[in-house]
């Protein structure tokens, strides 16, 4: 790579607009869908406290933050479609339509919305740098997951287990602290990815 300062000639033309990048979109969507699957089936990362972190929601939010709301939601939808069709890629290596009947179905069905909302809210990241960008990403992730995944999860618990709102919230609230940590991690990873691949940030959609 040649530094611009070595060229005496002055301003360089901006890089050519990306070629019709449907192929790259398909590849990114499929790869992030696969990443969500891997995060769901790999054993969690051990932590000092002894409660392992499983990374499924981390991967869902990361898809939205990195790919943008449309491609992020498509990645999650692809993951759900393949999982519901019977490939065991949901948490604990389950799959198939059976998961829709389970109490946790609400969380799963809200994942695409979570990725989409996080992706939408993260749009200002392209115009910010440094800590401001990290803050945008983190905030987008937190609102994206709390307003969709947790709401969907609570509704699912109420419907499936015939619980009232208070009882469902009591079950859900256990996951909140872990989700803050996962959103912090997702924002940090998204931030690093935008540093490594600047055009990724320009082409979010």
């Amino acid at each position: 790579m040649t530094d611009i300062t070595k060229d005496a000639g002055g301003a360089l033309p901006a890089p050519a607009a990306a070629r019709a990048s449907v192929a790259t979109d398909v590849a990114l969507v499929a790869t992030f869908a696969a990443f969500i699957a891997v995060c769901a089936i790999l054993p969690g990362i051990p932590t000092g406290s002894g409660v392992p972190i499983t990374l499924q929601t981390f991967a869902v939010i990361l898809s939205g933050l990195v790919l943008g709301w449309r491609r992020g939601a498509l990645a999650v939808l692809l993951y759900l479609a393949i999982g519901l069709a019977g490939v065991p890629i949901f948490a604990e290596a389950t799959g198939g339509l059976g998961v829709l009947a389970k109490p946790s179905a609400g969380y799963l069905l809200a994942f695409p919305l979570g990725a989409a909302l996080a992706g939408l809210l993260a749009s200002p990241a392209v115009r910010s740098v440094g800590w401001a960008r990290y803050t945008v990403l983190f905030t987008a992730g937190v609102f994206g997951s709390f307003l969709t995944i947790h709401v969907g999860g609570i509704l699912g618990l109420m419907a499936r287990l015939d619980l009232d709102l208070g009882a469902a919230v009591a079950i859900d609230v256990v996951y909140l602290p872990g989700d803050i940590v996962k959103n912090a991690a997702a924002a940090a990873v998204a931030y690093t990815l935008f540093r490594a691949y600047p055009d990724l940030l320009r082409h979010r959609r």
Binding site: M1, T2, D3, I4, D7, A11, L12, P13, A14, P15, V129, G130, R195, P198, D199, R202
Partner: peptide, 14 residues
């Protein structure tokens, strides 16, 4: 585009 080592906006490189 390449990231600015100083943390500023991305620059154009050849």
């Amino acid at each position: 585009y390449a990231p600015d080592p100083a943390g500023g906006a991305d620059r154009v490189v050849r």
